[in-house]
Lab assay of single mutants.
Amino acid sequence: MEVRTIKVFTTVDNINLHTQVVDMSMTYGQQFGPTYLDGADVTKIKPHNSHEGKTFYVLPNDDTLRVEAFEYYHTTDPSFLGRYMSALNHTKKWKYPQVNGLTSIKWADNNCYLATALLTLQQIELKFNPPALQDAYYRARAGEAANFCALILAYCNKTVGELGDVRETMSYLFQHANLDSCKRVLNVVCKTCGQQQTTLKGVEAVMYMGTLSYEQFKKGVQIPCTCGKQATKYLVQQESPFVMMSAPPAQYELKHGTFTCASEYTGNYQCGHYKHITSKETLYCIDGALLTKSSEYKGPITDVFYKENSYTTTIK
């Protein structure tokens, strides 16, 4: 009895394709271990004539594949690729409408935090270190965002349907971005203890939790000093293409032309909904596939993004 075979390709990165001759009487799992086709788990399936010449994702289970996976995804987590594939199996079914010149995501599976993050990423200057993220990001900007969303979920250790947080998501993504040249110098002034300067680099240099107003941050924000008295913390120097200011959701007025974009969060910790506000020729609110415009805006804002380049204080 002759062994019926077909020729397929296996890959971990969709760049390096490895030619395989597979036995049609055995499952993919018996031949390769966990195997995925377009995100779908085909591990328990036997090869079919229609699979001839198709590319299958496999887990990096030998040295060659491990090197290829690390170079593309910059992670050695053995569960990463499987999590990416199972997320992709959902995100490829989502709709990605162009809204006001940006790629958004039609609401499904509690994905409003991903839509808000995706919209924000198209408006701030950011370059990702893992080629996987950078490639998928370019495709997302062009309207094909399924891979990018699935990668975000995998890097953030999230599953489809789980509630997510924009600030946490951005923080994970910033860790995989090139923020080497970003720098922030802060000064804390206390009447009792004097003053202390701190220099922050990388992710810490672009994120701040405690106030939404970048102007206020430049002037000074009140913080408790270690001595128990009130101290003032203010920005001395900022070198970065953008800054992200966050605070627990509270009524906040966004003035046209003073910011790049913002995240609105309605609801409580267990259950809520994100919308995205962007400042173009007027203010726009993007909620999944829905767009509304207004000249002014007041609502429960939790993150505001500002364009920056270089700032030095005039406070002496």
Rank of each mutant, 00 (worst) to 15 (best):
Q98A: 03
S294I: 15
K307F: 10
T258W: 00
F70V: 13
A145V: 03
M170Y: 03
D165I: 03
G210M: 01
L163D: 00
S79M: 15
Q98D: 09
E308A: 02
Q122P: 04
T314A: 11
T258M: 13
N147F: 04
C227L: 01
V160Y: 01
Y72L: 11
T313E: 06
D287H: 00
K316C: 15
D62Q: 06
T169L: 08
D38P: 05
N268T: 15
G143L: 07
N187F: 07
S240E: 01
I301S: 04
S213N: 07
Y208I: 03
S279K: 01
C156V: 10
T75Q: 10
I223T: 14
A247L: 00
F70C: 09
T75K: 09
A247C: 07
T232H: 01
K92G: 07
D109S: 04
F56N: 04
T278C: 10
G267D: 00
V58Y: 05
H273I: 02
Y265E: 00
S213E: 04
E296C: 13
Y138M: 15
T266F: 01
A132K: 11
Y311H: 06
Y138A: 14
A177Q: 03
K316M: 15
Y84R: 05
K275P: 00
P241Q: 07
P47A: 10
Y269V: 10
G53Q: 11
Q270C: 12
G228A: 00
K93Y: 05
Y28T: 02
R4L: 13
K93R: 13
P130S: 07
G164P: 07
N16S: 09
G257S: 01
N89L: 12
E168T: 09
T76A: 15
Y297P: 02
G143P: 02
H51W: 04
F242E: 03
G164C: 04
L88G: 06
Y113A: 06
T266M: 05
E253K: 08
T43K: 09
I15L: 12
P97E: 15
I15P: 00
S263L: 03
K218N: 02
Y306G: 01
L88Y: 14
Y138V: 15
Q230E: 13
K218A: 04
V21W: 14
K93A: 10
N147Q: 13
C149E: 08
T11N: 01
Q238R: 03
G228D: 02
S310R: 12
W94A: 09
S240D: 00
I45H: 12
A146I: 00
C112N: 05
C182Q: 05
T211D: 09
G257W: 00
N157H: 10
R167F: 04
C190R: 02
T292N: 09
Y311V: 00
Q30N: 00
E68A: 09
H74P: 02
M170N: 06
T282W: 03
D38M: 12
F70R: 11
S263V: 09
I286T: 11
E144C: 09
P97G: 09
V58K: 02
L59S: 11
A250V: 14
Q30L: 13
L200A: 10
Y269D: 07
I286Q: 01
C156T: 10
R167A: 01
A250Y: 09
D287L: 00
F259R: 02
Q197W: 06
N49E: 11
K316L: 15
C271F: 15
T11W: 08
G257M: 02
T266W: 02
Q237V: 07
D62T: 11
T120K: 08
K255H: 10
I301W: 11
K127M: 10
L291C: 10
T312F: 12
E264Q: 05
E52N: 14
P60W: 06
Q222I: 11
I223P: 00
D287C: 07
C261A: 07
H18N: 12
P34I: 00
Y84I: 02
N16E: 10
N268S: 12
K191A: 14
S25G: 12
L254I: 05
Y72Q: 11
L283Q: 03
S246K: 06
L119F: 00
T278V: 08
G82Q: 15
T116F: 06
N178A: 11
S213H: 01
K183H: 08
N49G: 13
Y155K: 09
N100Q: 15
L126C: 08
V22P: 11
Q20F: 09
A262V: 02
L163P: 11
F32I: 15
I45R: 14
T10E: 06
E162S: 02
N309V: 10
T19S: 13
C225W: 05
